[in-house]
């Protein structure tokens, strides 16, 4: 938006009726539409909140509007399930994967943006091509691979954190690297050239000059990877079969799978807890989000 809208201001006084008609045709219907849309957007969230507070804790007794405020469901979740372990696992995967992916991706993006070398073109196109083969499509092969790896190295076999993390990191170089490279390209070269003149090494240019300048894109990529990892189900369900090693998402799935009606209150608390980190990150990064999203990374 460049210039503010130039509206013609009336110099004479309109009657109340005319003003109301004008308001309705200009803004009134917009408010009406937005009320409907907002209601559509909010009602499932409202339902899950009221179910979490519902003292009875079953699906059949949960109403759209809270019928009571009790922490019984939360207490039950903490006592009857390994909730803290699940939560810790989820956060471990999401945080570690986000951090390492950002680092690996930024390293590669720096090379692609600032250096000219043999294979650069092939590498960049290759990254695009690989996007057509989402990692989870190869899940059969990954499963077979890790049933062999797990025999030699139990530390990274099934039911371990490190095995699944390694697989997640296989997707570190992805479209996100493109996103980062595009952002790196917008940083003027004069900056790193002048640093080189002053005797900085390539590593110093990267860590001291580039990284601080591209923080927004690092934040966006971290956010996207975090969200994707915490919601990842397919590979986690193949890798983590032992209850104690599972993530919160898998745990919640089983919670409502076996006892759909009775466990719903516990599930609702868990669902809110699983959404909490995402909500927090969204809140803090909101000014970067629409800008980063338009540049091409996808969720939903």
């Amino acid at each position: 938006m460049t210039a503010p809208d130039v509206a013609v201001r009336p110099v004479y006084q309109r009657s109340t009726g005319t003003r109301l008609t004008l308001w309705l045709s200009r803004l009134g219907w917009r408010h009406a539409v937005m009320w409907v849309v907002a209601a559509f957007a909010v009602f499932p969230v409202l339902f899950v909140v009221s179910a979490a507070l519902n003292p009875v804790g079953t699906l059949s007794s949960s109403q759209l509007w809270p019928t009571g405020a009790s922490l019984a469901n939360a207490r039950e979740l903490f006592q009857n399930t390994p909730f803290t372990t699940w939560y810790a696992n989820s956060l471990f995967f999401a945080l570690t994967n986000a951090a390492v992916t950002v680092l690996l991706s930024a390293l590669a993006a720096y090379a692609f943006s600032r250096m000219r070398f043999k294979g650069r073109r092939v590498g960049l196109i290759g990254l695009l091509v690989i996007q057509m083969f989402p990692q989870f499509l190869a899940i059969v092969a990954i499963y077979l691979m890790f049933s062999n790896i797990g025999e030699v190295y139990p530390v990274i076999g099934f039911d371990t954190r490190w095995g699944l993390l390694l697989v997640y990191l296989g997707g570190a170089l992805s479209i996100n690297t493109w996103l980062m490279k595009g952002f790196f390209d917008t940083v003027p070269r004069e900056l790193d050239e002048s640093a080189q003149m002053d005797g900085a090494t390539h590593a110093q240019v990267f860590f001291r000059i580039m990284l601080p300048l591209v923080t927004p894109v690092l934040a966006i990529v971290a956010l996207l990877v975090f969200i994707n990892t915490i919601n990842e189900f397919l590979m986690a369900s193949v890798f983590l079969r032992d209850t104690a090693s599972q993530t919160l998402g898998l745990g919640l799935y089983q919670l409502v799978d076996s006892q759909r009606n009775a466990n719903f209150g516990m599930f609702a608390v868990g669902a809110l807890m699983l959404s909490l980190p995402t909500l927090i990150v969204f809140w803090f990064l909101q000014r970067y989000i629409s800008e980063g999203l338009t540049s091409g990374a996808v969720k939903g």
Binding site: V48, N231, G249, T278, G300
Partner: peptide, 24 residues
């Protein structure tokens, strides 16, 4: 309006499944 996007999609799918539950 953006609220659904900020919720955990995994949990929300499970929530929708239970909202569609025929009995309860």
């Amino acid at each position: 309006v953006v609220l659904p996007y900020a919720m955990s999609s995994l949990a929300m799918y499970l929530l929708w499944r239970d909202m569609f539950n025929a009995d309860f």
